Amino acid sequence: MAKRSGRDGRRRLGAGARQEMLARIAAAGGLRARRPAPSAGPDPAAAALREAVLDLQAARLPQLHDMWDSLPTLTVDAARLERNLVIAAARRDPAHAAFDVLRTRLLRALRDNGWHRVAVTSPTDGCGKTFTAANLAVSLSRYEGCRTLLLDLDLRSPGLAPTLGVAAPGPISDWLRGAEPLEAHLRRIGPNPLGIGGLGVALNDRAESFPAELLRDPATGAALAAMQAALSPDVVLYDLPPALAHDDVAAFRDQYDGVLMVVGGGRNSAEQIREAVRRIGDDKPVLGIILNRAEEERASGAA
């Protein structure tokens, strides 16, 4: 039974209850007593607890391991990122501030709802979704303690590797199908003078013949669940194909919590935007609609 300590008022387990608890721990863990329980001493229950701790240590039970620090690192080149319009890296272009505003609003929405996984898509090709995903990921990574993952899941036209200046990263499908372990494909951005912090990337250099089927495959769901369990990311950004071109975004819907829709100025009509949102479904909230290529819209005189 529980007793009340006169020192701090907290409830304490009695000796019999402690012995029963230790017996249950030993039974649950398959442990055997390695030494006889002490028969004398001021507190036999406390001595038995020490013995149980020794047994737990000796049993070499599996330890939880954070894989993040052991991931292979990836070197980024500031000049190449700037040439590829990753403007959030060097922060020379004043437009980088828009991504800082976007990250703050996105993090607030995710934390308010307990979400982590975001699909980045667009109604049609050429709207700048990969540009947006890369710049947002870099901006997010600069927040202290914000661990961000960026995955290229546009399996029809992968574009993140050239955007980040990475040659031949290999096919991401090998990992999604379970043929490769996570650490064989995911890379963490290494130390750099740009201040890019907690950012991991999974890139791709091969188009798939059946991308929607792979995105919906239970093996892909299992690979992504294992990734989240191993790395505990704060934000996962999935760069996906355009929503109106194919059914990939719909096929992948179980794997994301919300959507960022990148709209091309002068490229997308209001009807296309509405249809893209409709295809995603009412149960997947649109966390933001980002207008990209606005200068093209102004040049065309579009409203």
Rank of each mutant, 00 (worst) to 15 (best):
K129W: 01
K129N: 05
K129E: 02
K129M: 05
T130P: 02
T130V: 06
F131A: 14
T132C: 15
T132M: 11
A133C: 03
A134F: 00
A134R: 00
A134M: 02
A134W: 05
N135P: 03
N135C: 07
N135V: 02
L136Q: 08
A137C: 04
A137P: 00
S139I: 02
S139C: 03
S139G: 07
L140C: 13
R142Q: 13
R142D: 11
Y143R: 15
Y143F: 13
E144I: 12
E144Y: 07
G145Y: 01
C146P: 06
C146F: 06
C146H: 04
C146G: 09
R147S: 14
R147A: 02
R147N: 04
L149H: 07
L150S: 02
L151I: 09
D152R: 08
D152H: 09
D152N: 08
D154L: 00
P158R: 10
P158N: 14
L160F: 05
L160S: 02
A161V: 03
A161N: 05
T163Y: 06
T163W: 06
T163Q: 14
T163L: 09
L164H: 00
L164I: 05
G165L: 06
G165A: 07
V166K: 04
V166G: 01
V166T: 12
V166N: 03
A167L: 15
A167F: 11
A168P: 06
A168W: 09
P169R: 01
P169H: 06
P169F: 00
G170F: 00
G170L: 12
P171W: 11
P171H: 12
I172G: 10
I172H: 05
I172M: 14
I172Q: 07
S173M: 12
S173F: 07
D174E: 14
D174W: 01
L176G: 01
L176N: 00
L176V: 01
R177V: 13
R177I: 12
G178C: 04
A179Q: 12
E180V: 07
E180S: 15
P181C: 05
L182R: 05
E183Q: 11
A184P: 05
A184M: 11
H185W: 13
H185V: 14
L186W: 08
L186H: 13
R187Y: 09
R188M: 00
I189L: 14
I189Y: 03
I189H: 00
P191L: 02
P191Y: 12
P191M: 08
P193T: 09
P193S: 09
P193R: 08
P193F: 08
P193Y: 08
P193E: 11
L194N: 03
L194F: 07
I196R: 06
G197C: 06
G197T: 09
G197A: 10
G197E: 11
G197S: 12
G198P: 06
L199Y: 14
L199K: 10
L199F: 11
G200S: 12
A202W: 14
A202L: 11
L203E: 11
L203W: 06
N204S: 10
N204I: 01
D205C: 00
R206Q: 14
E208N: 09
S209Q: 15
S209R: 15
F210E: 10
P211V: 04
P211E: 04
P211F: 05
E213P: 10
E213W: 09
R216K: 13
